[in-house]
């Protein structure tokens, strides 16, 4: 009987392979995320209306920002995003509950129907609302025909912008919420009923706290996406409301003032980052995706 002599291999710990496997992603992020952001931050300190990165840093851009009314567009962005999140929570929770706990075969139909929309550019879907709400559009035309009421364009106001944001970001709230509601064990809900709780009490004391990871992820996702939204305000809102994202865009396009746009972006990123880090630090993602971690 021959015994193979064990080849001498260097034994790597599992840590080595983890780091190795994460490295392609890490490199992508370094090149495509971290470096561009540093670039933005640095550019924010360049003299206004220049396109060179290698100049003496200055705070001029930030002075301009604080002396002008940019805070208005920041407030508009934050406000619209917050309202969108609140409305979506109310709309999506019952639907998420139905998808997770009540519908059986129908759940995947609804899921597919809503998921498909993710793959159609939001511009196209928003344009549908334009056709619906414009003067002599589908809604106006129908009202005129049926009731004889003449309506002017329903576009270009704040509620329509909010409708557009609610509409575009609905899937980003619905799917995390559904995952969250699925995490609530049926027997735990039944036990609460059995111990005398009514529907509202079960919702408040059991459903909501146990589905909180889903609620948080959904809210966060929607908040971040809608705070940076451009299209809704432009396509549905006309020039009624100027959001911070469109301010930034116009600095880069019409105004050709890259340093000022960069400084605005930096400020905006910092604001969003504060919100995200505050929220992300509060829950464990692994719980939502797979194994429960504390067992």
């Amino acid at each position: 009987m021959s015994v193979r002599t064990p080849k001498k291999t260097r034994e790597f710990g599992p840590g080595f392979f983890g780091a190795l496997a994460s490295s392609p992603f890490g490199l992508l992020m370094l090149f495509g995320f971290v470096a561009p952001l540093l670039c933005v931050v640095w550019f924010g300190f360049m003299p206004p209306k220049t396109f060179e990165l290698l100049q003496v840093p200055t705070l001029q851009n930030y002075e301009v920002i604080f002396n002008q009314t940019y805070f208005k567009s920041i407030l508009w962005s934050l406000g619209l995003a917050a309202v969108t999140v609140a409305i979506l929570l109310v709309i999506c929770y019952p639907l998420a509950f139905a998808l997770a706990k009540i519908f059986k075969g129908g759940a995947s139909f609804v899921t597919y129907a809503i998921a498909t929309s993710l793959f159609v550019s939001e511009n196209i879907r928003l344009f549908g609302w334009v056709i619906g709400f414009m003067k002599n559009g589908v809604v106006g035309g129908t009202l005129a025909k049926l009731l004889g009421v003449q309506v002017d364009s329903l576009l270009y106001n704040v509620p329509v912008i909010i409708l557009g944001m609610v509409y575009v970001y609905l899937p980003f709230m619905l799917f995390p919420l559904t995952l969250g509601v699925k995490m609530v064990p049926d027997q735990v809900r039944e036990a609460a009923f059995d111990l005398g709780a009514n529907r509202w009490q079960v919702f408040k004391k059991i459903d909501l706290p146990l589905s909180m990871p889903g609620v948080l992820i959904g809210s966060l996702l929607v908040f971040v996406l809608s705070v940076g939204a451009i299209s809704e305000a432009k396509i549905l809102g006309g020039q009624k409301v100027v959001t911070i994202a469109s301010d930034i865009e116009s600095e880069f396009t019409y105004a050709q003032n890259w340093p000022l746009g960069s400084a605005l972006s930096t400020l905006f990123i910092a604001l969003t980052a504060i919100v995200v880090f505050f929220a992300l630090g509060r829950f464990d993602l692994e719980k939502l995706l797979g194994k429960k971690s504390n067992e």
């Binding site: 064990p185 059995d194 005398g196």
Partner: peptide, 19 residues
Amino acid sequence: PPNRRPTCMVFQSLALFPH
């Protein structure tokens, strides 16, 4: 409904409230 019955059950899974 169970919440209005004066009876109560201990589940196989126990259904303790994890939070």
